[in-house]
Design a binder for these strands. Structure first.
Lengths: 242, 242
DNA sequence: CGGAAATTTGAAATCGCTCAATGATAGTGG
DNA sequence: CCACTATCATTGAGCGATTTCAAATTTCCG
């Protein structure tokens, strides 16, 4: 788990809390906005999108989840789910009863601290994405998004080169970027023409990573808590989870 | 504190953690994006804006803070601050060393749980704001923002009528809405003309709250953890902070 | 191979931006 | 108390990015 030093124990921990695992096909809805909140999910395989639907009928994909992510956690402060969870690829999730998730705060303070820090990290990412959508052009947002996916993929699998398969349709991509599908198409073609990226079907190659970074203009965030200030408080304690 | 039942103890708790309090005038910078993260803040008086600056020179106000809010908490996962904190009015803050804040996770699990839930709530608010900015017109965003401020003010002071003073300049308002100052002006004039709101200098009256809600189109979120599932886990425990 | 879904392209309309100027307001020092 | 100045609010005109509507083409999957 990020931020707290007990790496591989996490999957084991979450699967031990999990009552069952479920599989979904691409485009399946895992949970609908407005549904009762009784559980959260641990994504073990595949990509999932979190979408917010507005009364006007428009939809925004506020987060693209990769394996290792918890799904649906923002909704634990609500009675009815804030977001719709949609499978972007075939996926496997582990279902965690909200009550079990909640109990971690009393039984495993260091796990709780890690979950808190992860929530703060998500806030920073959302702040950056809000700024990106509010203040940059479609092409800049696309560059920023591709880089974000690339950076995240590097942490979940071994990427030698900046090349990966992006399983989103252009409509889903448009939902992420906050533009229309038609414009997503034109924008991707335009970015392609700059020579910064190469598209071969769903396979994306980032030909000029630093060029893309300066285009995207997102501040580069180093999410490490090497900071001495909170490490000592968290590293000590006898409640090491099994 | 929200979500966990020990109301007024919170100010006492945070001021006990606080090493000092500071005052700022309107427009003062409390902390700059990129500064070292050594402390978080408790806002006891006035309004503060959290802004993200992009490399292109553009700025987005990602959050408007009211009294009772913690400031700067997203940055605890970073070495250098994610956001610039700006006083929107004369303010008073209590400075809390990040180490003291962090220690709460070991010493006061229920406070930790409350902080976690607050962070999740902020995620939901950011998700809604991202959707608002990405998918609605300037006038809809303005309606949504005014309602959000109104809803929050109701919880920190006694508002009999939907009328309040909005201390933001139009430039700051534009920073919030993700538009230019010029367009903020035109948009506010336009909203004024609909009869949904009334402007008298900085004083805003919401003449038709439900009309504004349907214009803004934001899902209405009920942030209460009446849910039986996590209450039991949190209410019990012997670590009641003094 | 056939049909549905996804991608691509075109043309016109709209929203918000930019540049530029004018008016109003508030704080300051004489 | 008033003149002075800086900041803030307002308005106009033209431009640009993105949307909308509509159709053509390609890809995917059974």
């Amino acid at each position: 788990m990020e931020f707290v030093p007990f790496e591989a124990a996490e999957l084991e921990l979450f699967t031990s809390l999990s009552s069952e695992s479920r599989h979904f096909r691409r485009h399946d809805v895992i949970r609908q906005q407005g549904d009762d909140v009784r559980e959260v999910y641990f994504l073990s395989e595949g990509w999932v999108g979190s979408c917010v639907d507005f009364a006007t009928g428009s939809r925004q994909m506020v987060k693209v989840h990769l394996p290792g992510d918890m799904l649906g956690t923002p909704s634990v402060v609500l009675d009815s789910a804030a977001e719709t969870l949609i499978a972007l690829t075939p996926i496997t999730i582990h279902v965690i009863p909200a009550s079990a998730y909640s109990r971690l705060f009393m039984s495993a303070p260091r796990v709780a601290a890690a979950m808190f820090l992860t929530a703060q990290k998500e806030r920073v990412l959302l702040m950056d994405r809000l700024t990106s959508v509010a203040r940059t052009t479609a092409m800049q947002r696309l560059a920023a998004f591709l880089l974000h996916v690339y950076d995240r993929l590097k942490t979940v699998e071994n990427l030698d080169e900046p090349m990966f398969e992006l399983p989103l349709s252009q409509e889903e991509l448009a939902d992420v970027l906050g533009i229309t599908p038609v414009h997503a198409n034109r924008t991707f073609a335009q970015l392609d023409n700059t020579g910064l990226v190469d598209r071969r079907g769903r396979w994306i190659t980032l030909l000029n990573v630093s060029g893309l970074r300066s285009l995207g203009a997102v501040p580069d965030r180093r999410f490490e808590c090497t900071a001495d200030w909170h490490a000592p408080a968290l590293w000590q304690g006898e409640d090491r989870p099994t």
